[in-house]
Structures are given as C-alpha cells and as structure tokens.
Design a protein around this nucleic acid. Structure first.
Lengths: 253, 253
DNA sequence: ACTTGCGGTTGACGTCGCGTCAACTCCTAC
DNA sequence: GTAGGAGTTGACGCGACGTCAACCGCAAGT
C-alpha cells in the first residue's frame, strides 16, 4: 500500500471509461474538481473525488443534466432531494415520450397522405389480429401475450387503429426499400429499421429476445401476416423475420 | 386588387405566427429568401415565398431539422424524396422513443431503490388488475378496453411488471407530494404530473378524454384501486381523479 | 421641429455536453 | 539529443432559434 492513494487523469480514464476531455469539462464547470495538481499542472484525483465521480456517472447514465447532477451531488446527506430530482426527471421523460409519440403519429399519417391512395385500410391491416382461427395455435406457440395483443387491438377505436396502421406502414415501407436495395439483413441500416419496428411493436408489448424472434417466425408461418407484410414487397416477411433474428440476438436479452 | 401582392415581415408574422427572428434566421441560412427588399432594407415576400414558407412550416411541425427541410423543399417535383425523408425521420423518432422508454424505466427503478424498503411489491401493485371479481363490472362500465388491459398485464413477465410498477410508483409519489403541498388540482404543476400519468398509462392504451376521465372515476369507485393509490397518500385517489378530469378536459379530445 | 414609440435592421451571445483540432509543455525511453 | 506519448489550456462547432444591444425609418402627438 502506498501512503496516499491518488490517480492521474489517464488512470481515471482507464478506470472509469470517461474521456479525459469530460474530466476537464467537469473541472471547468465545477462539477468535479481534482484534489490538486501535480507537476505540469496534471490533475490529481483521490478517493473522495472518485466516489463523487461515480455518483455523477450514475446520474448521468439516467440522463440528468449536469446542473441537476451538481445539485444532487452537492446536496449530500439529503437523499430525499435525490429522489425528488429523479422523480421530476422521470416526469420529464414521460412527457417527452408522449410528445414524440404524437409526433411520430403525425409523421406517419403524413406519409400515408403523400403516398396517396389507400395503401391498405385499417381494417385489412388488423384483420390478422382480429377474427382469429389461429388463436388457439397462437396461444400455444407464443403464449398468452399474442392473445392479449389481439384483445387489445380488438378494442381500439378508429383513431388509434389509423395511427397504428400508419406507423406500421411507414416501418414496413422502409424495410421494403432496404430489401429492394439489396441490403443484407445484418446491415446496420437494416438494424435501425428493425429497431423502429421493435419500437412500434412496443405499442402492444415489449418483447424480449425470444419473444421477438418468435414474432418474426410468426410473420412467415402465419399466412395472414405473410400476406399483409408481403404486400409491401415480395418476400418481405422472410426478410423481416431474418432481420429480426439478427437484431434480437445482438440487442435484446 | 393591387397589381403586385407583397408582404412585409410584420405582415408575414401576423399571417403565419412565426417570429420575425425566425424569418431572418431562415433568410440567413438560405432556407427562405425574401423576394427582395424595400426601403430601409425591409424584407419583401411574395406569393412563392409564402407558399414555400407554408411547406417549411408543415415539415417543421413534423419535427424535421432545417437541413432536411431544405433538402425536401428544394427538391420540388420529387415527391418520393419527401416520403423518404419523412420515413427516415419517423424511424428516428421511434428509435428515440425506445431510448427514452428504457431510460424512464431505469430512472424509475433507481427511484425505487433509493426509496428503499418495499413500498409495494409488483404482486400487490397489480393485484387490482389480476384475479378480478370486478371484470364483469369493468367491462360494463369502461368497455372492452379495461379487460384487454387486464389480460395484457396478466401476461407480463417479471421484468415488465417491475418496470411498470416502478414507473407508476414514481408518478404516484410525485402526485402525492403535490397534494401534500396543497396544490389545487388545476395547478400547472399538477397538470404536468397528470401528463406523466397519462403517458404512463400509454403503456397499456391511450385513452381519450372520456376514457381517461372514466379511468379516474374508477380509481375512486373501485376499492382495489383506491387502496393501492391511497397507499401513497391519504385521499390521493380522489385528488387524482379530479386532477385527471381537469387535465382531460383541457388537453384531450 | 422635436420627441416618442413602434417595428424593422444587423450583429453577437447563450443554450448542452462534450468532440475535435491546434499549439504547447512535460516526462520518459532510446 | 530527440522522438514519442500523454498531459495542459484555449477555442470552435453543433441546432434552432431567443434574447439583448445598438441603430435606423417612419408616423403621430406636442
């Protein structure tokens, strides 16, 4: 054991993974001052600074802004203020999610308008979910979730159905374009598109790796899904299934 | 009719609602050049500029960035590029929504941890949804939606239940704090908190004005909900119901 | 004619969290 | 002695404007 433990910038960088620029920035804005400086003006950090940094990083991970983080970290000994800050932050996040959902909805409808015509009515679109000769099979193969999704979709009003349909249409068209362009299913752009698909599915439920892969399989195995999806491009259902498999393996747990 | 129609900056401001600063900014970045300038360097806009501005504003409404808008608006006569831009934008929105959802989830769990203890287990929390002696009544009063929600909740895995529970807990605690602080249900801060509640409910379904108001009523009428919600503060269910009513009237259709 | 006031004009800064040069210093290894 | 590697302090850039600041033109009131 050396008498006084201390770390220089590069050591902190290796320990924590933050960039040296970030450390300097935190010093500059007063969020994390080093314990002192060594030869050549090198920053020296000790235990309390590392602990403070750890706290900062946790809060940063949660998406708080630096001023908020500073307020929390400086108000040590007052755990209630931390909860209050996180709660307020959480509320902001939910509000932002709501805003983006409405925005995505508008954009999708807008795309539908510009595409003109009647690319597929809401009725057609969700026929695959509604009157379901496959309900029993679905329950067997994908569990109660699929059935619950069907039930939920069945209760939608016009507006929600149109909105969901418009969004799905946009996602499928994007995928169809990528397929037509010859992109392999493991191309990063395809990954992005599948991420959008996964987010869209999030309207119903949030599948994990296995469930999502299963959903992809269903697209190929259930002719109602196959028909709907291939309406956007011949073979899209198979392409999508494979892309989903790749995505799920890489990004879900 | 005057021979040449033209509008000055302040007239355009009144017509369109954009700020004069924004018009100058659009001029500066080349997104919307005025047709010419009058005495004192005043900007003069004519019909084509107003049409272009309208197009710009539509796209801005949809959340596109100015460079993207410029690309679309300049590529007149090529409607496919517009659809492509919107589709890409839509995908970005969905990705962002997914990111924020995961973030909100983390934040909520984090709050739960800090709150310590076991403020209410996931089991307790959703007991109100599961084994339901009230199912028949619910179906009668709030239609098939409530039942579909129950079915969906019943299928959740541990992770999703914990996540949803943590988020709900955060929302309720925020509301309880506002109630304890004596905020009236029509205070703007309470409106924000209810917006967060509405966004949270969006995990299950997106209620309109009537449905949301009905949900609020259920919080008071159904003792299982009342008990759960009042666990965060005596009388919170009534407070929340009233706050929801105010919010729904003001913000939903 | 002079003042007041409104509304336009052109800069220029601030926002948020750093990434990314640029120019320089310091220490170490060869 | 010199090259190399890593640190240091600026300073700019990002996105879409909001917000002064300083100045000018024009019309109405005194």
């Amino acid at each position: 054991m050396t008498g006084t433990e201390s770390w220089t910038t590069d050591q902190v960088v290796r320990l924590t993974g933050v960039s040296s620029r970030t450390l300097r920035h935190y010093d500059q804005v007063g969020l994390l001052r080093p314990a002192g400086t060594g030869p050549g003006g090198r920053r020296i950090y000790r235990r309390p600074e590392l602990q403070r940094l750890q706290h900062v990083l946790v809060l940063r991970e949660l998406g708080l802004g630096l001023p908020d983080i500073a307020a929390v970290v400086d108000g040590v000994g007052d755990p209630s203020s931390e909860v209050a800050a996180l709660t307020a932050h959480h509320a902001r996040l939910l509000a932002e999610i709501g805003r983006l959902r409405r925005l995505a909805d508008s954009v999708a409808r807008s795309i539908e308008e510009r595409e003109g015509g009647d690319p597929m009515s809401a009725d057609e679109m969700f026929a695959a979910f509604r009157n379901d000769p496959y309900a029993a099979e679905a329950r067997e193969r994908w569990g109660d979730q699929a059935v619950a999704v069907q039930e939920q979709v069945a209760t939608w009003g016009r507006d929600e159905a149109v909105s969901a349909q418009a969004e799905m249409s946009a996602v499928h068209r994007r995928l169809a374009a990528l397929m037509a362009a010859g992109e392999p299913v493991d191309a990063p752009e395809v990954g992005d598109a599948v991420a959008a698909h996964h987010a869209w599915v999030g309207r119903f439920w949030t599948p994990g790796r296995e469930a999502y892969t299963g959903l992809g399989a269903m697209y190929v195995d259930d002719p109602r899904f196959t028909a709907t999806i291939d309406g956007y491009g011949e073979g899209l259902s198979v392409y999508l299934r494979d892309a989903i498999a790749v995505y799920a393996n890489a990004n879900l747990e």
